[in-house]
Amino acid sequence: PEAADLRALARHLYEAYLKYFPLTKAKARAILSGKSGDNVPFVIHDIKSLMEGEQLINNGQTSFQEQQIATAGHGVTHTFTHCNIGSEPPDGVELRFFYSCQSRSAEAVREVTEFAKSIPGFVNLDLNDQVTLLKYGVIEVLILMMSPLMNKDGTLISYGQIFMTREFLKSLRKPFCQMLEPKFDFSVKFNTLELDDSDMALFLAVIILSGDRPGLLNVKPIEQLQETVLHSLELHLKINHPDSLQLFAKVLQKMTDLRQMVTDHVQLIQLLKKTEVDMFLHPLLQEIMKDLY
């Protein structure tokens, strides 16, 4: 393809990314570095501050809750809307926090789906293949998208309104304390590549368009789409990061780490399902994780 077409594709995907993902890396880094004016996150570092943070979210009628309620009619997040707001929380800090994470993850799956649909050619693929690409790609995308929210000391949650410390997450009981540690390790390394939101948009599309997902019916058109996005990413990185040598190769290498993290993450969820009596998995996440790996 012509360079101009590849540039247009990069712009298109960046615009879609800005449209569907409410907390960009630019915003997140501004919050984390204290350069976002009045937008100072509430810090959760122990049980007391966790309770206060929950109150803050529940009383504040955040956009998150509004979105949950807005999507309730579609049966995607309604189950957890009822779990989180106004009714008795499930026992235990860990499970309650886990449910909030599930709620946000289900919403994020919806955002990623809309982004995937904006990739030129995606909606023309066999519908079953679209499902397969999302099923296998979406957790990789979600984990990758945690990186901009993280630094070595903790992570932004709840659309950047809260910063939860890594030490607090590590203090939760097993296996909850093990769930985010690998993501912190990955993020700290990934963040050294200093990708911006426009780079991320292209990289997410590359991940979604992986032609080697199990059960794909028609691999060829997926590989063709991915090849074009790869060319666009390569060119974009050269222009956007002229001094960063081999950045394209370094970015692509991260795909291996992401796959491993998804395998480990799903194993932890399966373990939770066996060990936690009260454990309730969101139907959308259940659908994605069933027979995944």
């Binding site: 999507t71 995607v76 139907p283």
Partner: peptide, 20 residues
């Protein structure tokens, strides 16, 4: 198709709160 009915629905309908 039954196994992934929510994903199917998300792919076929726009459920963006903006468009609701």
């Amino acid at each position: 198709k039954e196994k992934h009915k929510i994903l199917h629905r998300l792919l076929q309908n726009s459920t963006s709160p903006v468009e609701l």
